[in-house]
């Protein structure tokens, strides 16, 4: 017999699983308020809000944060444009080497980050490109393209090809067809892919280590900060803000894409 209600055992198991995943995050939040700044002591000896003020006044935090936001935004934009174009080409036309290209595009996400990082570093060295903001962006774009591409290709596959022909038939030029038919049909896929790309870039450490010069992105700043036992809760404050800032767009996107399960061009 199938029942819509889960058994108590299953509920408990699910609850335990979810707590295991999410309780440590709450721990991070609590340590942001602790009065002890050299080690993580449980329970916290006292609670204070002073770390928020300290964080606010630390220029290195602001630098790292703006750098990370810039890198993630530009990598995502590059990925959205190139990933969508590539997905359109692979799913809409037949050409020599099509299979090879779709494999090559996905490869960066399958490769260990350290391999991508080392190879990019050597390539930049050989080409005599100085490490800068743009080398970080290029490194991130390699794997950001993959997630956008994967999302877009899946959506293109589910979108009936005759929609494009129908639009052309009704008088629309290629650009108008893209604007009025293709974009509305792939927009949720692009939104999802873009957010994933942004999140991937925002917390990337390994590739960044190899492609950054003197700059510190936020995750690298956090890593460095943990090694230095000074004003430790500042890291927790930053972590808390990062969680809140990344959680809001994801929540927003979740509500935006809800109820768009209907497949484009499905059914007859």
């Amino acid at each position: 017999m199938h029942s819509d209600r889960a058994s108590t055992k299953l509920k408990v198991a699910a609850g335990l699983g979810l707590s295991f995943m999410h309780l440590p995050i709450i721990l991070i939040f609590i340590y942001a308020f602790t009065t002890e700044d050299k080690s993580y002591q449980w329970p916290p000896p006292g609670l204070t809000l002073k770390w928020f003020e300290v964080t606010w006044n630390r220029p290195d935090v602001w630098e790292a944060l703006t750098l990370s936001l810039k890198v993630a935004s530009i990598s995502t934009i590059i990925a959205l444009i190139l990933g969508t174009l590539c997905a359109a080409a692979v799913s809409r036309s037949r050409f020599f080497g099509r299979e090879a290209i779709s494999l090559l595009v996905i490869l960066p996400i399958a490769l260990p980050g350290i391999v991508t990082g080392i190879s990019l570093r050597s390539a930049f060295n050989i080409a005599d490109i100085p490490f800068s903001f743009w080398t970080i962006v290029l490194g991130h774009a390699t794997f950001c393209i993959v997630v956008v591409y994967n999302n877009a290709v899946a959506r293109f596959r589910r979108t009936s090809g005759s929609l494009i022909e129908a639009s052309m038939d009704l008088g629309a030029t290629s650009f108008q067809t893209f604007r009025h038919v293709i974009l509305p049909n792939i927009s949720t896929a692009l939104l999802a892919g873009g957010m994933l790309a942004f999140a991937l870039s925002f917390d990337e450490v390994i590739v960044t280590t190899f492609t950054a010069g003197q700059q510190q992105t936020l995750p690298i700043w956090m890593l460095e900060e943990l090694v230095r036992p000074r004003q430790r809760p500042v890291t927790n404050v930053v972590a808390m803000i990062v969680v809140l800032v990344t959680f809001l767009p994801i929540l927003g996107a979740y509500y935006l894409t809800r109820g768009t399960d209907t497949v484009a061009g499905q059914g007859k």
Binding site: L170, G171, N185, T262
Partner: peptide, 25 residues
Amino acid sequence: NTVFQDYALFPHLNVLDNVSYGLMI
């Protein structure tokens, strides 16, 4: 103008917007 075998109606538009698509363009 063509009536397609699978109809090719635009899934993101309602019936009225589907029908008036050509006029909108």
